[in-house]
Nucleic acid binder design. Structure first.
Length: 886
RNA sequence: GGGUUGGUAGUCUAGUCCGGUUAUGACACCUCCUUGACAUGGAGGAGGCCGGCAGUUCAAAUCUGCCCCAACCCA
């Protein structure tokens, strides 16, 4: 039985432990699960780092709303958890934690260290997530580096290879010189950086001798260190001033090699001098020019960002140092004409912020550019919450310029199951049955090259892009595997696929969602998700992005120190899904108040309707009881629809105001007067339904009350609806189908409201007695309720009688929805006629401005005047007269 | 530079897709009320003309165009 004040500090951790210990949310593999009713969620595996941030709290909570609602409302729910410990993030974490460098270790050795470090962090992380009370099934977790997942990832590689969707090619690729690996388009981002524009004089070959040719021209560049890599100079075909240069050659200053001057439309005439140099490679334009004009390849910068032999005297310098040195030397040689500060956007690696280079290297790709139309169609098949997020997907797919580069030159990660013939270079892949393999330590499945018969092989030592693995989470969760005997792919839990929901942040639509669609579509031929729910970012109280450098980061730990978890859940439900939204302490306070209200109201229900639980009385319920249950029926339907639509904010506010205003302020206040079985039955019935409706939102307090009042009660079989373990395993309420005159109930509460207002305006206590009240409305059946709660000595109800009031017509309201379209621009005249009171009313018809309006097209606005004894109160359409001598 | 989203009372926000004339709710604010749980409560009040300009329309927060501001995505 609930008593005293609610103590979330004690209650919440207790339930969190029990939910985990008792495996409350475990997905039952044992019984056959109906694929039509199972609800499966492909949850985002967070990158392992010890602590939570508000984005975690928000994201997990939103997922949990869906999981808890669907679990109650539908069948079995699959809510797994993954740890993304495969890749650069966990390499970095390990290097920092142990103060080591991955280059100093053998791959296996370093990977072992990664796993040790990650294991500690994962344990901590698990505790943190469990302290949020999310209903994860802790029996179904995975790590993206574990052997089972490595097998899935390598199977995926082999399947796509066999389908001809993968190829290996030596070509310019985006390269991070800091991480020393190739990366894909999605891993780059723009960064505004300060730089210099250097105006450099290029001599024209033969320009001194020919009067028609200038001796030199100017090129403005931000990257002087690329001068040694210069292979051509470009002029726009519309650039008349410099047209004479086209077809000639230029001499690259300091380095002296001659390069052709070519016309091309891709030149931006507005930037710098309008003449641009092409280097292999400075940006993507250079790559296009290199390919289209079949230019030389001069590689000046190596894998680690240092100058190569092509840079002659500058060899071995870091590119930045070389740039400075070259500028100095140009200045000395008189070739530097100007140098000015600018800010421009550069392409950087999103993980380390280093400017990317473009290097010609041999890499593995997944072909995508040929199928973008299909990937768009597949994306369109899903339900998007909110819909607008689909446009982001659309733009990303339409803007794709590269196939997916999946090889990374890193130590840690999942290896390619690939060897190459030492002699002819033939690709040899592993047998599916042998996976996972590491070619560095495992032997290829053949003794001799199937192509040339050579017997020595070179292992592939690159590892797979982490997204190549995390894009397989639906297949990992469904237990995708290869059955060697049957020669086909299988699923351990086929009923889960396709997944019902993919929740994730909008920032990784182009990473995770897109790549998952591509991979799963290629493997299974169908879209992996029915629905995707895209959440926004958490901002600070001032709607600013949280950032460590600004110092406005709110830590979940600090919030949970001060507020109950249920209050953070209330806050998290407070915005439309998909919008970025601010951290709001006000909402946490409001959440706390709601929790307290629910607790206190439950105490009152307990005392008004103590055990034993009364059955529905034979004499039936009173009007008021049926009215409440009927209103609650309507509320159940509204709320179910809102939660189906993931409209958490509306659901939260809707339920809160119905519970607070209708149940607590109206029904409970009246029910306090009563001690009959009908009231007790109604209170208990409504209360149990409220707890269930609140359960997805306020997971802890509802569980505590459920156990206090129902699940652990003496008569629990009858009370707990078969859910004595947890309210979260109870069935979602269905409408009871209670018949009630809801108009009468509404009128009765309007009367009570009017009397309250009367007392408030007259500064009377709500318990003050009223001598006499007359009601002109059909509120029969509610008389005792009204007199009881409002302390009316003498109540007279006139259900059909005309009120003793005079009505004065104060104006005419038009029904514009009908009148507007019907009369068009005559509406102005009609309004003018009404304003001048130049109209006639007769037989329910209105004659004005030469037209006749019929009954439905207008409403007469009246003011009631009462000249009798007492005071007239207005309460919607109900006339209430109060006489009070006091 | 292109695109997406948003700009509604002191603050946050509903409504905008499907135009209809007293614009929703919460928090803060003011007044009153100790009533069988809750004063961390209850009743009531004041506060906005919907970023700006122009247009379409009988009618615009809601449609169209332009502009300004912010965030994000992509160049």
């Amino acid at each position: 039985m609930p008593s005293g004040e609610y103590d979330p500090d004690a209650v919440e951790p207790r339930w969190q432990r029990r939910w985990v210990d008792e495996e409350t949310y475990a997905y039952s593999d044992d019984d056959p699960v109906d694929p039509n009713t199972v609800f499966s969620i492909d949850t985002p595996p967070p990158t392992v780092s010890g602590s939570l941030h508000m984005g975690h709290l928000y994201g997990f909570t939103l997922q949990d709303f869906v999981a808890r609602f669907e679990r109650m409302n539908g069948g079995e729910t699959f809510f797994p958890f993954g740890y993304d410990d495969n890749g650069i993030a966990s390499e970095r974490l390990t290097e920092d934690e142990l103060d080591i460098r991955h280059q100093d270790f053998e791959r296996r050795e370093f990977q072992a260290k990664c796993r040790e470090v990650c294991a500690d962090y994962e344990e901590q992380f698990t505790e943190n997530v469990q302290s949020l009370g999310v209903s994860v099934d802790w029996n179904h977790t995975y790590q993206t580096i574990e052997p089972r997942v490595q097998r899935v990832s390598q199977l995926s590689f082999l399947d796509l290879y066999e389908q001809g969707r993968e190829y290996r090619e030596k070509a310019p690729a985006i390269w991070c010189p800091e991480c020393e690996t190739a990366i894909s388009q999605v891993e780059t981002e723009d960064d505004e950086q300060g730089s210099h524009f250097n105006d450099i004089a290029f001599p024209v070959v033969g320009g001194d001798a020919d009067d028609d040719l200038p001796a030199e021209f100017v090129i403005s560049t931000t990257r002087p260190e690329l001068l040694p890599a210069c292979v051509a100079v470009f002029v726009h075909p519309d650039d008349e001033e410099n047209q004479a240069l086209v077809g000639e050659s230029a001499e690259v200053p300091l380095f002296g090699h001659e390069v052709p001057i070519i016309a091309d439309e891709r030149v931006d005439m507005e930037t710098g001098s309008g003449i641009v140099m092409c280097c292999t490679f400075g940006d993507q334009n250079d790559i296009e020019w290199y390919q289209v004009h079949d230019l030389d390849l001069r590689v000046a910068i190596d894998e680690s960002g240092h100058m190569t032999g092509v840079a002659e005297a500058y060899e071995g310098l870091h590119a930045d140092e070389a740039g400075e040195a070259i500028v100095e030397d140009l200045d000395e040689a008189g070739a530097l004409l100007d140098r000015r500060d600018i800010t421009h956007t550069v392409n950087v690696h999103e993980r380390c912020g280093t400017s990317v280079e473009f290097l010609v290297t041999e890499q593995w790709y997944i072909e995508m550019l040929d199928k973008t139309d299909e990937y768009l169609a597949v994306g369109r098949e899903m339900d998007w919450s909110p819909e607008k997020m689909f446009t982001r997907y659309e733009h990303w797919v339409e803007g794709l310029q590269w196939d997916w580069l999946i090889s990374r030159q890193r130590s840690s990660g999942i290896p390619f199951p690939v060897w190459y013939c030492d002699d002819c270079g033939e690709v040899v892949v592993a047998d599916k049955a042998d996976l996972p393999v590491d070619p560095l330590s495992d032997d290829p499945p053949v003794d001799a090259c199937p192509e040339c018969g050579h017997d020595a092989f070179e292992p592939e030592d690159d590892v797979l892009d982490t997204w190549a693995t995390s894009s397989l989470t639906p297949l990992i969760n469904a237990g995708w595997d290869w059955d060697d005997e049957a020669g086909e792919f299988t699923m351990e839990r086929p009923e889960l696929y396709q997944f019902d929901l993919r929740p994730q942040g909008h920032d990784i639509i182009s990473f995770w969602l897109f790549h998952t669609l591509v991979k799963c579509y290629e493997h299974t031929g169908e879209v992996p998700f029915e629905e995707t729910m895209i959440n926004g970012h958490v901002l600070d109280e001032n709607r600013e992005k949280m950032s460590k450098s600004v110092g406005n980061v709110v830590e979940p730990e600090a919030v949970l120190e001060e507020f109950p978890v249920d209050a953070t859940r209330y806050w998290a439900a407070g915005t439309a899904v998909g919008d970025d939204f601010p951290f709001k302490e006000k909402d946490l306070r409001a959440g706390e108040k709601l929790i307290r209200k629910l607790w206190n109201a439950s105490k009152l229900v307990e005392s008004l309707a103590p055990e034993p639980f009364p059955a529905e009385p034979e004499g039936g319920l009173r009007e008021l009881d049926r009215w409440l249950l009927a209103e609650l029926d309507a509320e159940v339907e509204r709320l179910t629809d809102l939660l189906d639509d993931r409209a958490f904010s509306k659901a939260r506010d809707e339920l809160r105001s119905f519970f607070w205003n209708t149940f607590c302020d109206d029904y409970l206040e009246i029910a306090k007067q009563r001690e009959d079985d009908a009231a007790a039955y109604t209170l208990r019935t409504a209360h149990r339904r409220f707890l269930k409706l609140f359960a997805p939102l306020l997971a802890h307090v509802t569980e505590e009350l459920w156990h206090d009042m129902y699940a652990d009660a003496a008569d629990k079989a009858a009370l707990a609806d078969g859910a004595s373990d947890s309210i979260h395993l109870a069935d979602w309420p269905e409408p009871l189908g209670v018949e009630a005159d809801r108009d009468a109930g509404t009128a009765a509460t309007a009367v009570v409201g009017a009397l309250r207002k009367y007392k408030s305006e007259n500064q009377l206590p709500l318990t003050a007695a009223l001598d006499a009240v007359e009601v002109y409305a059909d509120v029969r059946g509610f008389e005792d309720d009204i007199t009881g709660v409002m302390h009316v000595d003498d109540l007279a109800v006139h259900p059909d009688g005309d009120a003793p009031v005079e009505t004065v017509i104060t104006g005419i309201d038009l029904d514009y929805a009908t009148v507007g379209p019907k009369y068009g621009d005559q509406v102005g005249d009609i309004e003018a006629g009404l304003a001048q009171e130049d109209y006639e009313l007769a037989d329910d018809e209105l004659h004005v401005a030469g037209v006749t309006l019929v009954d439905e097209e207008f409403a007469v606005e009246e003011e009631r005047q009462y000249r009798g004894e007492g005071e007239l109160l207005q309460a919607d359409d109900v006339v209430v007269i109060v006489r009070n001598d006091a």
